[in-house]
Protein backbone atom coordinates (compact mmCIF):
# COMPACT_ATOMS: atom_id res chain seq x y z
CA UNK A 1 0.00 0.00 0.00
CA UNK A 2 2.93 2.32 0.46
CA UNK A 3 3.67 4.40 -2.58
CA UNK A 4 7.35 3.51 -2.71
CA UNK A 5 9.03 4.80 -5.82
CA UNK A 6 10.17 1.61 -7.43
CA UNK A 7 13.62 1.75 -8.92
CA UNK A 8 14.19 0.04 -12.19
CA UNK A 9 16.81 -2.16 -10.65
CA UNK A 10 15.50 -5.31 -8.99
CA UNK A 11 16.78 -5.82 -5.47
CA UNK A 12 19.71 -8.14 -5.66
CA UNK A 13 19.36 -9.34 -2.14
CA UNK A 14 16.54 -10.83 -0.18
CA UNK A 15 16.44 -12.03 3.37
CA UNK A 16 18.53 -10.95 6.30
CA UNK A 17 22.01 -9.60 5.60
CA UNK A 18 24.57 -7.51 7.50
CA UNK A 19 24.53 -3.78 6.84
CA UNK A 20 27.79 -4.04 4.98
CA UNK A 21 25.98 -5.89 2.22
CA UNK A 22 23.99 -2.80 1.31
CA UNK A 23 25.09 -0.72 -1.63
CA UNK A 24 24.18 2.62 -3.15
CA UNK A 25 20.41 3.06 -3.27
CA UNK A 26 19.64 0.07 -1.05
CA UNK A 27 17.24 0.21 1.86
CA UNK A 28 16.25 -2.32 4.45
CA UNK A 29 14.54 -2.83 7.78
CA UNK A 30 16.72 -3.50 10.78
CA UNK A 31 16.20 -7.03 11.93
CA UNK A 32 18.58 -7.46 14.84
CA UNK A 33 21.89 -6.42 16.35
CA UNK A 34 24.44 -9.19 16.79
CA UNK A 35 23.65 -10.66 20.24
CA UNK A 36 27.25 -11.73 20.81
CA UNK A 37 28.33 -8.13 20.97
CA UNK A 38 29.05 -6.54 24.32
CA UNK A 39 25.69 -5.53 25.79
CA UNK A 40 26.67 -1.93 26.25
CA UNK A 41 27.71 -1.72 22.60
CA UNK A 42 24.43 -3.29 21.47
CA UNK A 43 22.53 -0.81 23.57
CA UNK A 44 24.54 2.08 22.21
CA UNK A 45 23.93 1.11 18.61
CA UNK A 46 20.22 0.96 19.33
CA UNK A 47 20.19 4.35 20.99
CA UNK A 48 21.92 5.80 17.96
CA UNK A 49 18.80 4.90 16.05
CA UNK A 50 19.67 1.39 14.85
CA UNK A 51 16.57 -0.17 16.45
CA UNK A 52 14.80 -3.34 15.36
CA UNK A 53 12.08 -2.43 12.90
CA UNK A 54 13.50 0.89 11.76
CA UNK A 55 14.07 1.51 8.11
CA UNK A 56 17.64 2.18 7.08
CA UNK A 57 19.19 3.37 3.83
CA UNK A 58 22.76 3.29 2.56
CA UNK A 59 24.00 6.78 1.72
CA UNK A 60 27.70 6.66 0.90
CA UNK A 61 31.06 5.24 1.79
CA UNK A 62 34.41 6.96 2.28
CA UNK A 63 37.24 6.47 -0.12
CA UNK A 64 39.55 3.52 0.49
CA UNK A 65 37.11 1.35 2.44
CA UNK A 66 36.38 3.97 5.05
CA UNK A 67 33.30 4.44 7.22
CA UNK A 68 29.80 4.11 5.76
CA UNK A 69 27.03 6.69 6.13
CA UNK A 70 23.48 5.41 6.72
CA UNK A 71 20.22 7.27 7.04
CA UNK A 72 18.10 5.99 9.91
CA UNK A 73 15.57 7.73 12.17
CA UNK A 74 15.90 10.91 10.10
CA UNK A 75 19.64 11.28 10.80
CA UNK A 76 22.83 10.43 8.97
CA UNK A 77 25.08 8.22 11.08
CA UNK A 78 28.38 6.82 9.95
CA UNK A 79 29.83 3.56 11.19
CA UNK A 80 33.00 1.71 10.42
CA UNK A 81 32.56 -1.52 8.52
CA UNK A 82 33.30 -3.56 11.65
CA UNK A 83 30.33 -2.07 13.46
CA UNK A 84 28.05 -2.08 10.43
CA UNK A 85 28.62 -5.81 10.03
CA UNK A 86 27.09 -6.35 13.47
CA UNK A 87 23.72 -4.98 12.40
CA UNK A 88 21.51 -7.20 10.31
CA UNK A 89 18.77 -5.96 8.03
CA UNK A 90 15.98 -7.45 6.01
CA UNK A 91 16.06 -6.31 2.42
CA UNK A 92 14.06 -6.96 -0.67
CA UNK A 93 10.61 -5.84 -1.81
Amino acid sequence: MSAVTTTDRRPRLDGVVPLTALGPGDTGTISYVDPDLDHSVQHRLRLLGFCEGREIAYVRRAFWAGPIVFRVCDVHMCLRAEQAAMIHVRTGA
Binding site: V4, G53, E55, R71, D74
Partner: peptide, 11 residues
Amino acid sequence: PADARPGRRPP
Protein backbone atom coordinates in the same frame (compact mmCIF):
# COMPACT_ATOMS: atom_id res chain seq x y z
CA PRO B 1 1.65 10.87 2.89
CA ALA B 2 2.69 7.32 2.24
CA ASP B 3 6.37 7.06 1.51
CA ALA B 4 9.09 4.86 2.82
CA ARG B 5 10.78 7.55 4.86
CA PRO B 6 13.66 5.93 6.68
CA GLY B 7 12.80 5.62 10.34
CA ARG B 8 9.13 4.75 10.11
CA ARG B 9 8.42 1.16 11.03
CA PRO B 10 5.55 -0.72 9.35
CA PRO B 11 2.32 0.09 11.19
